[in-house]
Each structure stands twice: as C-alpha cells, then as structure tokens.
C-alpha cells in the first residue's frame, strides 16, 4: 500500500523515498552510481523484510565503506577476496542471502580467481559487480575493464590493447559456468535502467535465499572523477562508450548445479 500524505489540503502518494539505509552521508563522488546500487539493494532488503537474513561483504575499492551505508550485517574483505568470504559465509549460513559488492579492480583483476571459482562451484551468493572501467578509489588507474584508447592515470596515451589486452568481459565468462543461475548486465544511468537494476537485484536475492546458484549482476557504471569528467559529461560518456562495449541485458536466466 502506497504511503499517503496531505499537503496544502491535497492528498499525495509517496512515489519514492529513501530506504532504510544508515544515516551516514555516502562518500561517493557526485553522480557516481555506486550509491544507486546500494540504495536499490537496501530497498529490496526492506521490501522483502529480510534484514535478519542477509549478510554482505564489502570490497577494497570505492565500496569499501558499504557497511557504513547498508543496514544489515556486513564483513569487510581484503582486496579481491570478497567471493571467498562470501563462500565461507554461505557455507555455514545456508539459509541466509549473501552478497558481495565489488569493483572492477577488485573483482576482475586481483580477485578474478576467487570470483571465477565461486561462480564455478555455484555458490548461492549475489555478486554485485560495479564495472566503471577504472580503479576509482586508488586514483583512476587502468583496470582490466578499461576501454581501448581510454585515458587513465596509468594509461596516459590511452589503453593500448597490444600492451594490455582488451577489456575483460567477466559476465561473458561466468555465464559459461554451470554454477551460475543468473548473469545480467545492468546500468543506472536513467530511471528505466535503474528500475531494471532493482528487478535484477530482487531476482538475485531470491536465488540466493533459495540456493539456486550464483547470481552475477554487472552494473555498468560511471566514474566521473576517474574519467576526469563532470558528472553530466560522465553520463554521456557512460551511454556512448560503456554501454556500447558492455551491452545491457540478461546473459543467462537459468542454471545452477542441480
């Protein structure tokens, strides 16, 4: 039931209000979609009423302080190890949903082994992969997901695929594993995409609660500061470059080890 209020004698439905996040201000840079990911996740937790039945893992990277925002029990992992922590948690707490929030440096570089093996074992966890093609917190260095030609602080002439290979499409890799039951690529650059992202999170939480296998949601995100753009310029770059290289949509909706 929608909440209703009265203002100046007129009745209004509350269309959207802040979920039950903690009161702390998010430290993310203006326009960064990290905050969107966490608030949508919290909305799903609130709506499903599973605060007591979900445990999260924050990474090393921009989402390191996710435990200051999310309102549920959280653990903080070493760089790249979130999926190993999540495996440990899920194996001893099988009735709980378990999620990780990880950036592309954390997940696709230093933590690739932990990520792939968790997916291959079909751990019933939710991997929320924030891919903005750059190391954000470390200061804008090249990541495995950095686009060809993209200028970063460690690829000042643009990423040269001859030196550094092509951007890693992790979602395409993990969809091949029998262990994954849901692999999708989403964005949060407009309201339509943000609503789809929330649906994807709902589905993934459901999968984790019901032990159906690994759910992998890649949020193709932005990084205004790392990209050295204003927030508004970053929205344009996001759509024109990121979404072109990392097309949105479900890569897999059924699976898991039976």
């Amino acid at each position: 039931m929608a909440e209703t209020i009265t203002k100046n004698g007129q009745e209004f439905d509350v269309v959207w209000k802040k979920p039950n996040l903690q009161k702390n201000d998010m430290h993310y840079c203006p326009g960064c979609a990290h905050g969107t990911l966490e608030k949508l996740l919290q909305e799903v937790i609130d709506e499903k009423g599973i605060q007591h039945q979900i445990i999260g893992v924050s990474p090393v990277g921009c989402a390191v302080f996710a435990y200051d925002y999310m309102n549920c029990d959280m653990q903080e992992a070493a760089h790249g190890r979130a999926c190993a922590l999540a495996t440990g948690i899920k194996r001893v707490m099988p009735e709980h949903a378990v999620f990780t929030i990880q950036g592309d440096g954390d997940l696709a570089s230093i933590g690739l082994a932990e990520t792939l093996h968790a997916c291959n074992r079909g751990e019933s966890i939710i991997i929320l992969f924030y891919n903005n093609a750059i190391y954000g917190m470390t200061g804008g260095q090249m990541a495995p997901t950095t686009l060809p030609g993209q200028i970063t602080s460690s690829s000042p002439d643009g990423r040269d695929p001859k030196l550094s290979g092509m951007p890693l499409k992790v979602a395409n890799i993990v969809k091949e594993f029998d262990g994954t039951c849901y692999v999708t690529r989403q964005a949060a650059n407009n309201a339509v995409n943000a609503r789809k992202l929330k649906k994807a999170i709902e589905k993934a939480v459901d999968n984790s609660l019901n032990n159906r296998g690994t759910s992998f949601i890649e949020l193709v995100g932005n990084c205004p500061s790392g990209w050295k753009l204003t927030p508004v310029e970053s929205y344009k770059w996001w759509e024109e470059n990121m979404l072109k290289y990392y097309p949105l949509g479900d890569l897999k909706t059924e699976g898991g080890i039976k």
Partner: peptide, 21 residues
C-alpha cells in the same frame, strides 16, 4: 508529474517524490 524518475536515479537518495493521489 510525480513520476519519481529523479528520486530513483539519485545516487544519494536525497529526493522524495510525491504524486497527487
């Protein structure tokens, strides 16, 4: 028009949106 688009995309959750009942 109280569509809530602004509120749902706001990364910092600072907007509350209302639509006429």
């Amino acid at each position: 028009i109280g569509c809530g688009n602004c509120a749902i995309v706001c990364p910092d959750s600072v907007i509350t949106a209302y639509r006429a009942a």
